[in-house]
Nucleic acid binder design. Structure first.
Lengths: 236, 236
DNA sequence: GTCTATAGAATGATAGAC
DNA sequence: GTCTATCATTCTATAGAC
């Protein structure tokens, strides 16, 4: 997905080789079962550690420990901490971009927004670590994905702003600032991933049940749709 | 505010003395101008560094550099990185708790929520670093403030949930889950602090103007109040 | 109160035997 | 492919001269 990422953390010492998504992809065909399983375990552990501590706070020792392998083996599969981080970020991008498509499946504002909000809530449920890595990146002023924000995210946002503006012009929803609406959707849906520790604590130390989560999803949809005068989505 | 904070990061080496908010307070009367100014500069620098990198990712060197003092001087004023972090977190607690009061100034749901949302938006504008330190704490599963979430925040939340539930029972707002409404308010308002780098990037690399920010504040109030059937707040 | 110099621990990464 | 041993760097914190 991202062949070229910006150079970050120039103060660190440089390395001879940096694995990119492309070179990793190229080797997919010849991966042994051991390699595939170890890479999967490392990426999963890395996602959780980077989500919790950000790039700088994460340590390769902790990632290796959570992956259940000795630290040198981690460097065998991913030559540098930075290369590993880029792979993790890359994986998250793909998930988020896929979700974005649900915005375009339908031209009815109520139905399109219902699908998009629901999909974003599902991602917060299924991939909370990815959302947290993204949050950490933004808190750190996006050293890795900054140009990505300026290109892919900006283009995606502009095109959806245009869609929302058209709905307004056609009188199908109230006059709202499209960006403000998008930020509200992003903030509210991602809150269920990024702040899930706070939500769990307020919920008596336990995660929201499936029923409670589904109810929250429906409430978020209802409040936002009602709030912008789009009413409820028609039954499918 | 917080005299006793939980023990964190037990793996790190221990220190002979940990400054608490109380001991620091006790010395207020005899502070020289130099001490006061240096402590202020250090705390401001620390807030921005902890906001950006979290506790583990932050370095005392960077804090000292941003404060414009040599690193050993930082340790002269704050004996450990952890003590400094606790002071920063303590400062933020006070701001957030003050804001919470605006919820109780009025019994009319539209007016109370308008005041609370507006106040929270103002805090995101005026103290974005504090909000980011909080966000980092939650992402890291709140190693410092965990018991605070379970006591102060839980009590505050419960009492406001009761207020919202009463409004529902009296038919003054729609049937909504009170927690879901609160999370939506927190998420949306804090988004303007925690994700301001993303918002700025999408805004052409510049911060939102005062006018745009005020408009966003009004929109957030309008969408949420309309969304829960509270209508607009009566003119003051 | 200030700051040079540095101790002691942890970190990212590598060498090289198996 | 795996892992013990270890290096070079960076970190928190302190000693001690001024």
């Amino acid at each position: 997905m991202i062949d070229q990422l910006v150079n970050i953390y120039p103060k660190k010492r440089r390395h001879k080789f940096t694995m990119t998504a492309k070179t990793s992809q190229k080797r997919n065909g010849s991966k042994t079962g051991i390699r595939r399983e170890n890479e999967r375990a490392i990426l999963e552990a890395a996602e959780s550690v980077f989500a919790e501590f950000g790039y700088r706070g994460a340590t390769t020792s902790l990632i290796a420990e959570r992956a259940g392998i000795p630290k040198p083996n981690l460097h065998y599969y991913f030559p540098t901490k930075e290369a590993l981080y880029r792979e993790v970020v890359d994986n998250i991008f793909n998930i988020w971009l896929d979700a974005a498509d649900s915005f375009d499946d339908c031209d009815d504002p109520a139905e399109a927004l219902t699908r998009y909000i629901s999909k974003k809530m599902d991602i917060s449920r299924d991939h909370p670590m990815g959302s947290k890595v993204w949050a950490n990146e933004i808190l750190q002023k996006a050293p890795v994905i900054h140009d990505y924000l300026e290109t892919v995210l900006k283009d995606w946002t502009n095109s959806r702003v245009a869609i929302i503006q058209r709905w307004i012009d056609e009188g199908r929803i109230d006059q709202v600032n499209p960006e403000t609406l998008l930020y509200m959707i992003w903030a509210t849906t991602q809150h269920y991933a990024d702040f899930n520790h706070q939500i769990e604590t307020l919920n008596g130390g336990k995660p929201l049940s499936d029923d409670r989560f589904e109810a929250a999803k429906q409430q978020v949809v209802d409040i936002i749709l009602t709030g912008i005068g789009a009413g409820r989505a028609p039954a499918p």
